[in-house]
Simulated scan of single mutants.
Amino acid sequence: MPRSFDRPADLIDAAREMADSGRPTLARLLAEEAADRTPDVNEATRILADFPGRSFRQED
């Protein structure tokens, strides 16, 4: 069954899996997406703190 990433919690779960498997960059990107989809600023900050590192996003 394919995974869905409809909720921030889905992205956080995937980020944890990536971190556990030695993929910190992908974990950080997933955490950033989860934080973007989280309406509570404090919760978004906490999510990013759980997955430290610099952002690799390319913003305009």
Rank of each mutant, 00 (worst) to 15 (best):
P24Y: 03
P2G: 14
D36W: 07
D50Y: 01
D6A: 15
A31N: 00
E17R: 14
P8L: 08
T45M: 11
T25G: 11
R54Q: 15
S21C: 09
E33G: 04
R23D: 12
D50V: 01
E32G: 00
R23I: 07
A19V: 02
F5T: 08
D20I: 06
A19K: 11
R16G: 08
G22P: 07
A27R: 02
L26W: 08
Q58K: 15
R3G: 08
E59Y: 09
I47V: 03
E33Q: 10
R16N: 10
E17Y: 09
P24V: 04
D20L: 11
P52G: 05
R16V: 06
S55C: 05
D6G: 15
A31V: 02
D10T: 11
L26I: 12
R37T: 03
F5S: 05
D36E: 12
P39V: 12
R28T: 00
Q58V: 14
T25V: 14
E17P: 05
F51W: 00
I12F: 07
P8R: 03
S21M: 11
G22S: 11
L11C: 10
P2T: 15
R46E: 10
V41Q: 11
E17A: 12
T45A: 14
M1Q: 14
A31K: 00
G53A: 02
Q58G: 14
A44F: 08
L30P: 00
M18K: 09
R46I: 05
D60Q: 12
A19T: 02
L29T: 05
D50P: 01
R7T: 13
R54C: 08
V41L: 12
D6E: 15
T38F: 03
R54D: 14
A15I: 06
F5Q: 06
G22M: 11
P8K: 03
A35W: 02
N42P: 06
R23G: 08
E43H: 02
R16D: 10
R46S: 04
R37F: 04
E32P: 01
S21N: 10
D6T: 14
P52W: 05
P39M: 07
F56L: 09
L26R: 14
F5H: 10
E32D: 03
D40T: 08
P24N: 12
R46D: 07
A14C: 13
V41A: 13
A15G: 11
N42V: 10
N42I: 08
E43D: 08
R28E: 03
P39Y: 07
N42E: 14
A19D: 06
V41I: 13
A35V: 03
I47N: 00
E17N: 08
E32H: 04
I47C: 04
R54E: 13
